[in-house]
Nucleic acid binder design. Structure first.
Lengths: 139, 139
DNA sequence: TTCTTGACTTAGACATTGTCCAATGTAGGA
DNA sequence: TCCTACATTGGACAATGTCTAAGTCAAGAA
């Protein structure tokens, strides 16, 4: 992840403790945290970090293309540090956990020209939903 | 749409003015409104209708499978009355408009077994993003 | 028709998630 | 070391959604 920090510095980012901590949190477990979860974890290492800074930093990482924003349920957005690999998501409809998955073929090609209605289609996201093994176990 | 109302009554729904109005709004233009837009339009016909009722009614319609909930941007959810036809969505990244589209093949089959990680996958949503003709015109 | 009752609606408080701003702090170059 | 433009802070505010207690009413019963 220090790669990431280097890349960002190369792009004129000022390297602050807060930004470093946010980057480290994202780099830790390969999970998809909400902004507030990132804030909570960042606070463990840097107690005074403010919510605004976490939101700002996440927003910057997204617009720099280093992190993906995933909104699967209309609740809080989640942040996916795996932005450099093409992948889709598998979401547990019960507990909300997200896994990265890889699909066969290019989903974009499944949309025929006449179904594009003049849009310049540039992106496609595929989200699979189901019950994860943990949640389907004997409750 | 009176079909819908009949169906709902068959399922034990009490038929109130508020619910009728919400159903009519959804049945009108084939657009995907947010809850507050539904509320605004419902208020035109029934000024005293409350936000809570609109939210309740939309929630019920969703759990009855009569309407789909679409959350494309992490902002307000939108409601899609076209629940009985299999379709996916095409979203304008600039103005947020949503169109229903039909894809070739079954997107579910693009996810190989080993990529399912023990989930019981039951649903897949595909969202295409791009710029709509209106937004790509000379601004 | 009128009565009864449990389901429905209402208003508004509250919760969650996110944005904005003015004051303050500080990274990194000169 | 000093400057200063950029970053951070805390708190107010906004948007969306949920909950509750009290009042209302649809639809079946008599």
């Amino acid at each position: 992840m220090s790669d990431l920090l280097e890349r960002l510095r190369g792009r004129g980012w000022r390297l602050t403790a807060q930004r470093r901590v946010v980057a480290e949190v994202l780099d830790g477990d390969h999970v998809h945290y909400t902004a507030d979860e990132v804030h909570a974890r960042a606070s463990d290492r840097l107690p005074e970090i403010s919510r605004a800074t976490v939101y700002n930093t996440l927003g910057e990482l997204v617009s720099l293309g280093e992190v993906l924003e995933v909104s699967t349920d209309g609740r809080a957005k989640r942040y996916d540090p795996n932005a450099h690999h093409d992948h889709q998501h598998l979401v547990c409809s019960r507990c909300g956990t997200i896994r990265d998955v890889h699909v066969q073929g290019d989903p974009l090609s499944a949309l025929p020209e006449p179904e594009r209605y003049g849009f310049q289609v540039s992106e496609v996201t595929v989200t699979y939903r189901g019950i994860c093994p943990k949640c389907s176990g004997p409750s």
